[in-house]
Amino acid sequence: MAKRATREAYGKALLELGREHEDIIVLDADLSGSTKTAVFGGEFPERFFNVGIAEGNLMGIAAGVATTGKVAFASTFAIFASARACEQIRNSICYPNLNVKIAATHAGITVGADGGSHQAIEDIAIMSAMPNMTVVVPGDGVSTEALIKQAYEYDGPVYIRLGRAKVEDVYKESEFFSIGQANKVKDGTDATIIVSGYSLNDAILAAKTLELEGLKVRVLDMSTIKPLDIGSVLKAAEETGAIVTVEEHNVIGGLGSMVASFLAEHLPTPIQMVGIRDVFGQSGEAEELIKEYNLTSKDIVEAVKEVIERK
């Protein structure tokens, strides 16, 4: 299977969208080489605007463009989109419900060597708390391409969380993806791993490892965190009775919180969260950091065993 970063898939999808649709305007804040919007900018310079290092303005320009009926894609690193430009996204994009797609790359600790200042571990929490915002966190290149294209079709603000590190493609081109719909990657009855983003491959590996030990574990790729696919979550809770959530994000306010708060209201179920335990990241290679912050497939295996005991 091919290995590529979700940001690379974004760049490819954006270019394809640009060739098909004239109403796309792409904006970046001096990171177009890294976010991969430069691919679009190279072919469509008249529809590409670099705003310089000014993320607040980036979001405001995107909002203004969107008022005229165009679809604006605004890209920068997740830390700057969600934190630096937080209030511009809130008041200029979400409050007026404008058609802006914020494709934020370099999310999570797998940014690597740049260190904690550049590793957004709270962006899902911030973006999910805004009314009108849809939050998409794809776990491989194939689903990223499909979901970027869906985000274009979808009317309203979408935050798409993308990574710097390469991940193995999980899906085939022919598979169907829909914003708001979980993908059942593997079925099982003993427990369910609900995962989003970078950890998708590790979650699948964990389920395969557990299978060798005789445990049948379902894996749900929750590539949309908001709105949460509550049907799939409820079904997983009913049918498997134990949930492990996995995310490269703070356990406060991320996928784990979303699943837990939903189930607490509707069907209290034992949950174990694999995620960053409310600490900032640091420099290191992506894989080293995944180990350091206990997000490996081994950690997922242990979490599944623990949660099954609590059934």
Binding site: I25, M59, G60, T68, N91
Partner: peptide
């Protein structure tokens, strides 16, 4: 924030 939005409209 309004000047940015207005500039976006002008861009279009």
């Amino acid at each position: 924030q309004g000047l940015s939005a207005a500039a976006g409209m002008a861009v279009s």
